[in-house]
């Protein structure tokens, strides 16, 4: 049995999963079941951070991965995002990188920044 807190919503259900049968208890919805299974096989998280933006009204551009990426790739993704230089203007939702460090997941802007 492994215990964990579900991260799918702010409710934070306390989940238990049997590592052999993959049976999940403590969840209040289907998302919790899928979360617990992913957590013991390939835990994933949405990465949020900032990137440098040039010639814009802001110094930093908040960004995130469009979908969750493997937890184990987070620091590698951070190093890559640090090397980015985004040019203003940017609209919220714009894709900045199509495939972030080979995860197959896009990096998007989460704020509109004018020139």
């Amino acid at each position: 049995m492994r215990e964990m807190t579900c991260l799918e919503c702010p409710r934070g259900c306390q989940l238990s999963i049997d590592e052999e049968s993959l049976e999940v208890t403590g969840n209040s919805c289907e998302k919790g079941e899928a979360f617990a299974r992913a957590e013991i096989t390939n835990p994933v998280r949405v990465l949020t951070t900032t990137a440098v933006i040039e010639s814009g009204t802001d110094a930093m551009l908040p960004v995130r991965t469009q979908d969750p990426i493997p937890k184990s790739r987070m620091f590698e993704a951070m190093r890559f995002i640090k090397s980015l230089r985004v040019k203003a203007p940017v609209e919220v939702g714009d894709v900045l990188v199509r495939d972030l460090v080979g995860t197959g997941v896009a990096l998007i802007a989460t704020k509109s920044v004018k020139k």
């Binding site: 919503c9 702010p10 949020t48 919220v92 989460t110 704020k111 509109s112």
Partner: peptide, 25 residues
Amino acid sequence: LNQCIHNGFGVKTFGEALSGPEYAD
């Protein structure tokens, strides 16, 4: 919200997890 760049806002309001600036937008 402008400085809360992390994720998880709006699950109740919009049915998806947004960052702070997206929620404000």
